[in-house]
Structure formats: C-alpha cells, structure tokens
Simulated assay, not measured.
Amino acid sequence: MKPTITIEYCPKCGWMLRAAYMAQEFLTTFTGYVEAVALKPGAISGVFRIYIDNNLVFDRKSNGGFSEVKELKQLLRDKINPGMSLGHSDKN
C-alpha cells in the first residue's frame, strides 16, 4: 500500500498557502509512489509538521524554522523510495 503524506499547518499563521504549495510539489514529485497528500489545519499555534502515515518526518519548531522544498523532498524520498532520483533536487 502506498503511503499518505500529511501536512499539518497553523491556519492562524497563514501557512495554508505554504502547505498547499508543498502538497503540489510532493504530488508532482512522488506521482505513483504516494496514495495522497492531505492538508490538516493544526490546533496548536505555530505548528507546521509533515507526516508519512502518521510518522513525523519534519517539525518546523524542532528544525528551528522552515526547510527548503528541496530538502523536504529529500527527507520524504528517503522514507518513501530511497533509490529514487530527484533530478536537480539531488544536486548541491
């Protein structure tokens, strides 16, 4: 079964558009490898977390801020399909 990516975001912080943009990027990158990308309004102020099947992969607070989409794709790829090339996103 393919995994589901969930992006939990703080609606009060105005991060819905950021979450939607990331969802689009993840759906485009991982077509065929994921079941869905879900957006989940968080109940905690300042929350921005990314899960794969309820397993935390990224937390903005623990990370000290937002990561670039490229880095998030690499994190997700390493969990979903480690051998997958991300093309230009794999280059330094």
Rank of each mutant, 00 (worst) to 15 (best):
residue 1 M to F: 03
residue 2 K to M: 15
residue 3 P to M: 06
residue 4 T to N: 07
residue 6 T to Q: 12
residue 7 I to F: 09
residue 8 E to F: 05
residue 9 Y to H: 02
residue 10 C to M: 01
residue 10 C to H: 04
residue 11 P to V: 02
residue 14 G to V: 07
residue 15 W to C: 02
residue 16 M to N: 14
residue 17 L to Y: 11
residue 17 L to T: 14
residue 18 R to S: 15
residue 18 R to K: 12
residue 18 R to F: 14
residue 21 Y to F: 14
residue 23 A to G: 00
residue 23 A to T: 02
residue 27 L to C: 09
residue 27 L to I: 11
residue 28 T to I: 09
residue 28 T to Q: 12
residue 28 T to H: 13
residue 28 T to Y: 13
residue 29 T to P: 12
residue 31 T to L: 09
residue 32 G to S: 12
residue 34 V to H: 04
residue 34 V to C: 03
residue 35 E to V: 06
residue 36 A to M: 03
residue 37 V to F: 07
residue 37 V to H: 00
residue 38 A to W: 06
residue 38 A to H: 09
residue 39 L to W: 00
residue 39 L to H: 01
residue 40 K to S: 10
residue 44 I to E: 07
residue 48 F to P: 08
residue 48 F to V: 05
residue 48 F to C: 09
residue 49 R to D: 07
residue 49 R to E: 12
residue 49 R to P: 08
residue 49 R to V: 08
residue 50 I to L: 13
residue 50 I to C: 11
residue 51 Y to I: 01
residue 52 I to D: 11
residue 52 I to Q: 13
residue 52 I to P: 00
residue 53 D to T: 00
residue 53 D to R: 03
residue 55 N to K: 09
residue 56 L to N: 05
residue 56 L to G: 11
residue 57 V to G: 02
residue 61 K to R: 10
residue 62 S to C: 10
residue 63 N to M: 08
residue 64 G to L: 04
residue 65 G to S: 00
residue 66 F to P: 01
residue 67 S to C: 15
residue 68 E to T: 14
residue 70 K to T: 13
residue 70 K to D: 11
residue 70 K to S: 13
residue 70 K to V: 11
residue 71 E to Y: 07
residue 71 E to P: 05
residue 72 L to N: 04
residue 72 L to V: 10
residue 74 Q to G: 01
residue 74 Q to V: 11
residue 74 Q to I: 03
residue 75 L to C: 08
residue 75 L to M: 15
residue 76 L to F: 08
residue 78 D to P: 02
residue 78 D to N: 09
residue 78 D to I: 00
residue 78 D to L: 10
residue 79 K to F: 04
residue 81 N to V: 11
residue 83 G to I: 03
residue 83 G to L: 07
residue 84 M to P: 13
residue 85 S to V: 00
residue 85 S to D: 05
residue 85 S to W: 01
residue 86 L to Q: 07
residue 87 G to Q: 01
residue 89 S to D: 15
residue 91 K to V: 14
residue 92 N to R: 07
residue 92 N to K: 06
residue 92 N to P: 15
